[in-house]
Design a protein around this nucleic acid. Sequence first.
DNA 1: CTAGGGTTAG
Length: 650
Amino acid sequence: MLIRLAGDPHNFRSLQSTLRAFKPAPASTDADPTSSKTYIWNARLRELAGGGLHLETLALFRRMFLPQNPLPDAFSLPFALRSAAALSLPLTASSLHSFALKSGYLPGDPFVLSSLLSTYARISLLLPLAHSLLYEICATASSTPIPTLIVCFNSVISGHTFPSGDALTLFIHMRRRRDLPFNSITLLALFPVSPLFSIPSLHALTVSSGFQSVPAVANCIITSYAKSGDVNLAQNVFNEMPAPRELITWNSLISAYSQNGLANHVLNLFDEMHISREVQPDPITLVGVLSSCANLGARAFGLRVEAFILTTTNAFSSNTFLKNALINMHARCGNLSRAQEIFDEMPDRNIVSWTAIISGLGMHGHGESALKMFDEMLLQGVRPDGALMVSVLSACSHSGLTVRGTELFSKMKNVYGILRRPEHFACMVDLLGRSGKLREAMELISSMPMDPDGAVWGALLSACKIHRNVELGETAFEHVVELEPTNVGYYVLMSNIYSDAQNLHGIARIRAMMKIRGLRKDPGYSCMEYKGRVQMFLADDHSHQQAKSIYQMVSTLENFARKVENRGAKMVDSDIQVLGIHSEKLAIAFGLLNTEPGTEILVIKNMRVCENCHLFIKLVSKIVDRRIVVRDASRYHHFAEGCCSCKDYW
DNA sequence: CTAGGGTTAG
């Protein structure tokens, strides 16, 4: 039915009017105008489409309808269809459909048929049409050869852009109802658009059908597991692959780690890749590595990567993705001026570059400069997007620019036309909350057009901690715990609110809740970078190879801490005992053992440093010849735990 | 000469 419908000659006229809307191709892109041979025109179409010049492809295709030129044939159509898909032009696509029918290439020609389906599937507006067309082909044309049918299913499956049941349903239909075999390309198309719960069973199917030995399919499975957070399963797939594994395989696992916050694993894997000599890194590898350096504050490692980039070819050093990653790395590892330098020298900035530099400025408390950059960006005609606004709003929040932030927040909707998502509301709650406007923050939450998420209530909760508001804190806590019952950070935050209010009942209640729910506070850890490697210490951790001398150093430091004082504050035996062996103590001891006097010991910690430990570090700092800097890791992630960075800790 | 596919930034 659809085939007939689209065959209306009226549609054929719309092909010509649609194509006429395009500018004619420049002279250099013309086929030899004197040629009457269709294949010469087709070769030119192929060149243009292959080079991504889709407008030019369609223009050339249109010229073939001029009287002196040969008409397009079945070989010309797929090029035009592919370009229509790339430009997402539904009318052009359906006109091409009509032309194909009128010229008799459909429904018989398998190539035209499959490229038409692929085009329909890639234009989101026409995806439902692709479905019905596919069912129609299955129902009517029993003459369609099986390989072509498989290609048709593959095309429509890959036309889906986000995980839903639809593609999976199609796949089940393909196998159960049509009894069609599938191939590796079916799997490559299917994995990325299947719901996460179905990944393990699809993996099993892949193994039983023998397609796991196709590297591309295995890579695809690694990525799918990474998306569903099953890093271990992703790792298993990688380990089961025979060496030498291809670059994309390594990159897939690096991204899997990096997207799941396992920054240390990324650096280790990168080393392993180097040592195994299986492959050489490419820009994609390095983007993942640099982002992990940024998350860890692994400055020396990041600098090594940068040095490597500078020794490579242009393809690396001019890569925009890579430059964005470098800006991010430098900003988060404390070298804002280098970040600014790279940004200033970039000829081809994109929205991500602006986001990186603005969030860097914001993170370091340069809210005014961040806003200046934002204005500059607008002047250059770059349209802000949702992610950029998160860094702009949080820059305001970190610098106390409440009025400007509020203005920008309302401009988002009214001027820039950006959909305001929960993370933007979380920024605003944080902004208002930090400046003590708890009631307004609460009102904003009530006015949200969508249900507030954990980050929103978490921002309110941490504002309640700052301003010691137990009552509102309890409200925020109730909500946040319902939304994210296993996020331990919120329990700790609420417990600290009670502790400030000396509400022992409250503390006991929170402890009991955590116990009943089987929650344990995440182990505290501290990281320190040494010789380009990130050293990680857990509280009371004896696993380090230098453990013995580290513990000796710790007890030396403890003795010092008992003797010195800082503005009247001193530590006594019981303080030291209560403090125990926190991870930062181990990291600092390690730093003292392994670095030269006069250098800086930078420790990144995953949670706030307790008062007692804070004092310990202050006392120790007075007597050692190093500068000890402890930074909270949450400073390096926006709203990572629902509460944001921590100027007030230090 | 023609269709279908995998890895990258916040």
